[in-house]
Computed example of a mutant assay.
Amino acid sequence: MSIKTFELISTTENGVELISYAALPEDASDEKPAAGILVAPEWWGVVDHPKSVVERLAEAGYAAVAMDVYGEGKLTTDAAMANMWMEQVLADQDMLMSRCRLILNDFSDQLSVDGDNLGAIGYCFGGKVVLDMAREGMPLKAVATFHGNPGAKQPADKNFAAKVLVAHGRDDSMVSMDAIEGLKSELDAADVDYTIDVYDNAKHGFTNPQADERAAKNEVDLGYNEAAAKQSWENMLEFMKANLA
């Protein structure tokens, strides 16, 4: 399917430009809007990996946007810089969520996006971002995380309306199986419908083809696993198809 891509620029109330990257199926229109999926990138920012994710989603028939939560389109391949930027936005999680809500609103206002049919996907740090969006009661029907951080801004409650799919690597040294068990308990307590898939021989970052290169450069425990990346992507597409009409 042919697609079109564009920058979606949202301006915060204090004048910061959030430069997100959007992709649409060529045939999406105001007469035939596409279901929308928001993508929260890993801590590197809107680099090639999340851009390719939104393009693949558009090829699968969805409108998609990689959210620039850092602002000004900042991106890096340096783990220390990425960690600093991540810590900065995590220090003000209300601001982080208001940025996500702003991008969600601007994205769903596009005529070719079906604002009543929204999902979200998060990678690593972005996994926390999209789970928190659902915890905040944003209008998402389905949330999927890949090697996501499950740490909560506040625990899920009755406002959490999304169904959840978690893709986790068994060898992830950054997000422990205990953390995943904690997420299960949280979601059970809020009566959330979820599925957790655990992939063998998969480390943190297993969906990102650049993971090994980033690991070597930064001495962090990341690794790409092609089989897990492929299977988790197919499972996510099935999950979105089931939940986004």
Rank of each mutant, 00 (worst) to 15 (best):
residue 92 D to E: 04
residue 27 D to L: 11
residue 14 N to W: 08
residue 239 F to C: 03
residue 78 D to K: 04
residue 104 L to T: 09
residue 169 G to I: 06
residue 122 G to M: 09
residue 116 D to I: 00
residue 4 K to S: 13
residue 236 M to E: 11
residue 99 R to S: 05
residue 189 A to S: 15
residue 175 V to F: 10
residue 173 S to L: 12
residue 22 A to E: 02
residue 47 V to P: 03
residue 169 G to Y: 13
residue 1 M to Q: 11
residue 237 L to K: 10
residue 136 E to C: 12
residue 90 L to A: 10
residue 37 I to N: 04
residue 192 V to E: 01
residue 53 V to I: 15
residue 73 G to R: 00
residue 8 L to F: 00
residue 11 T to G: 02
residue 224 Y to S: 06
residue 94 D to P: 04
residue 203 K to Y: 14
residue 82 A to Q: 03
residue 160 F to D: 06
residue 206 F to D: 09
residue 192 V to K: 06
residue 129 V to Y: 02
residue 22 A to H: 06
residue 178 D to T: 14
residue 37 I to F: 01
residue 243 N to A: 09
residue 15 G to K: 00
residue 218 N to R: 05
residue 168 H to K: 08
residue 80 A to L: 06
residue 206 F to L: 09
residue 52 S to T: 10
residue 46 V to G: 01
residue 210 Q to V: 07
residue 24 L to T: 13
residue 32 K to A: 15
residue 243 N to E: 14
residue 184 K to P: 01
residue 18 L to P: 00
residue 140 L to Y: 11
residue 57 L to Q: 04
residue 171 D to Y: 10
residue 114 D to Y: 05
residue 184 K to R: 14
residue 120 A to G: 02
residue 113 V to Y: 01
residue 78 D to C: 04
residue 59 E to G: 12
residue 67 M to Y: 03
residue 163 K to G: 07
residue 68 D to Q: 02
residue 242 A to G: 13
residue 24 L to Y: 11
residue 135 R to Y: 06
residue 123 Y to D: 06
residue 15 G to Q: 00
residue 203 K to P: 02
residue 232 S to R: 06
residue 115 G to W: 08
residue 217 K to P: 05
residue 157 D to N: 15
residue 182 G to I: 01
residue 114 D to I: 07
residue 12 T to C: 05
residue 4 K to A: 11
residue 161 A to C: 07
residue 21 Y to A: 05
residue 241 K to C: 05
residue 65 V to Q: 02
residue 140 L to D: 10
residue 201 N to K: 13
residue 205 G to Y: 13
residue 230 K to F: 10
residue 20 S to N: 07
residue 241 K to L: 07
residue 30 D to Y: 11
residue 96 L to H: 00
residue 236 M to P: 10
residue 186 E to M: 08
residue 75 L to T: 14
residue 90 L to E: 12
residue 20 S to P: 04
residue 66 A to I: 01
residue 101 R to P: 03
residue 83 N to G: 14
residue 13 E to A: 12
residue 124 C to T: 08
residue 97 M to V: 05
residue 223 G to D: 09
residue 235 N to R: 15
residue 220 V to N: 07
residue 196 I to F: 09
residue 55 E to C: 02
residue 56 R to K: 15
residue 97 M to K: 08
residue 235 N to D: 14
residue 162 A to Y: 04
residue 232 S to E: 13
residue 14 N to E: 15
residue 88 Q to W: 06
residue 139 P to D: 15
residue 8 L to M: 04
residue 4 K to Q: 13
residue 61 G to S: 01
residue 63 A to S: 08
residue 83 N to S: 15
residue 228 A to I: 01
residue 180 I to W: 03
residue 167 A to W: 05
residue 42 E to V: 08
residue 243 N to L: 03
residue 234 E to C: 03
residue 200 D to T: 13
residue 93 Q to F: 07
residue 45 G to C: 06
residue 36 G to I: 00
residue 193 D to W: 06
residue 13 E to Q: 12
residue 69 V to P: 03
residue 210 Q to C: 05
residue 156 A to V: 07
residue 69 V to Q: 08
residue 78 D to T: 09
residue 3 I to T: 14
residue 235 N to P: 06
residue 175 V to S: 09
residue 76 T to K: 01
residue 22 A to L: 03
residue 113 V to P: 07
residue 110 Q to C: 13
residue 36 G to N: 02
